[in-house]
Design a protein around this nucleic acid. Sequence first.
RNA 1: GGGGCGUUAGCUCAGCUGGUAGAGCAGCGGACUUUUAAUCCGUUUGUCGUGGGUUCGAUCCCCGCACGCCCUACCA
Length: 512
Amino acid sequence: MTDQVNEVIQIDENHVIAERREKLKALRDAAKASNSAAFPNDFKPKDKADTLQKTYAVQDKETLDPQSIPATVAGRMVLKRVMGKASFATIQDGSGEHAGARIQLYVARDEIGEALYENFKHWDLGDILGVTGRLFKTKTGELSIHVSEIKLLTKSLRPLPEKYHGLSDQEIKYRQRYVDLITSEEARATFIARSKVVSAIRDFMIQNEFLEVETPMLHPIPGGASAKPFMTHHNALDMQMFMRIAPELYLKRLIVGGFQRVFEMNRNFRNEGLSVRHNPEFTMMEFYAAYTDYHWLMDFTEATIRAAAIAARGTAVLSYDGKEVDLSKPFERLTIVGAIQKYAPQYTLEQLNDAVFLRAEILKHGTKPFDHAGLGALQLALFEETAESQLWQPTYIIDYPVEVSPLARASDKNPDITERFELFITGREVANGFSELNDAEDQAARFTAQMKAKEAGDAEAMYYDADFIRALEYGMPPTGGCGIGIDRLVMLITDSPSIRDVILFPHMRPEA
RNA sequence: GGGGCGUUAGCUCAGCUGGUAGAGCAGCGGACUUUUAAUCCGUUUGUCGUGGGUUCGAUCCCCGCACGCCCUACCA
């Protein structure tokens, strides 16, 4: 551990916490005196707030009350109303669709005894309680537990956010996600939806005979994408290693090995900027299927995304940022030039095939294309400037130029373009796939070209991966492969404006 | 990296082109045995993000820095 890691961040203390520490001290003393625990762990809840609500809230008071149905629950006290010799409190227990179901407690002095009631009055919002009692309905018809036994299970030392407005400070929501999750049903719902998306995709892949695999996160040579890697060091081997930027080259080695269909859903790491749609580590689902091509991939990717949306939301017709996104219909497919013609019709076909014109036009948009950029790369750059952000409904852009697709199979009809697509939804790239290049000699030549680009200053150009070439030399069947950005897909499905809203612990600078 | 906006009590927020801060919630004390953002009475709490500058005097004006959010650039 370095000194930097050992440096404890200064944690705020205040009078509220000081008072709670005093209460905890009293609790410890009392526990010691009675030979019991200050943080007892022997209370086992038998019921869940959500189940109780669903089962008994429908019964009317006259039917419910006389049955004296027993209930034993545990949860965090989130509301408390003391009225002299009786009180109401509300606990939240983590059950239910959004993991925040609540049930009201009625705590009467005459029922639990004077001494315990006095203690209860000083318990705080945020404390975790275990209670036993009988179900009844109040005058206003709210299902409640008439408490006969109540126990403080965990003393909370820190005050919860304001009970009505909750937590609104974005920074605290991200840094202290635990507080966000306690107080925000929306946050809990988002992460539950994320979990459903992930398991729906996994189920869908397995149903379609894909084998889930795990390939290295630590790579001796970063590969499979054009990106800047994180570097690290292995002490025992005394070698430099890279956090993976993509699993692609390992997954294709598995296709060489004879697995027909593989997928991996896990983290990639890219040492690049942070933004509303970039986190340094992000989750990608990559899959490879032998004897398929990019046409098949597009159909399959579409079906996967549709299944994920339906699993998480119950529908493939979504709303994002107030506008509809329809995943239920077949996704549109456009070439790069076709997309420019559709979304930026001011350009003539002649202009779009004029490298000099394109270069000038791209410069006008404030981007400087690489000196060695060919016609295809220039068309792609213009597409990115003029059309990409307008691709709101799901749209596949196809036929990417060879020069920007070093791992993709070239078209048999036109050697300058590849059998590649990218999927855009709400103006953002969500997936990228292609017919894989399985000609080892062609791949070796492409790697050599990438190395030259790297030497010429392109920091994101790929390395030459000799073992990958060796694998291809054994022969890889014709294969289709695709990566789906899970975080961005979850953003879409949960209508979240920022990638930080769908990552439990997004990366932040250290606290000031 | 560049630009814009923000940072006031534990939380949610006021604070009038300058006179060293308020409310609600939470807490504490009191009343109250069917409340529900309980109510009523009383009450504690702030290096006003941070370091400079201007000024008799700065939460307020100016500059730097930190952190955050948004846009932009690289990218998925």
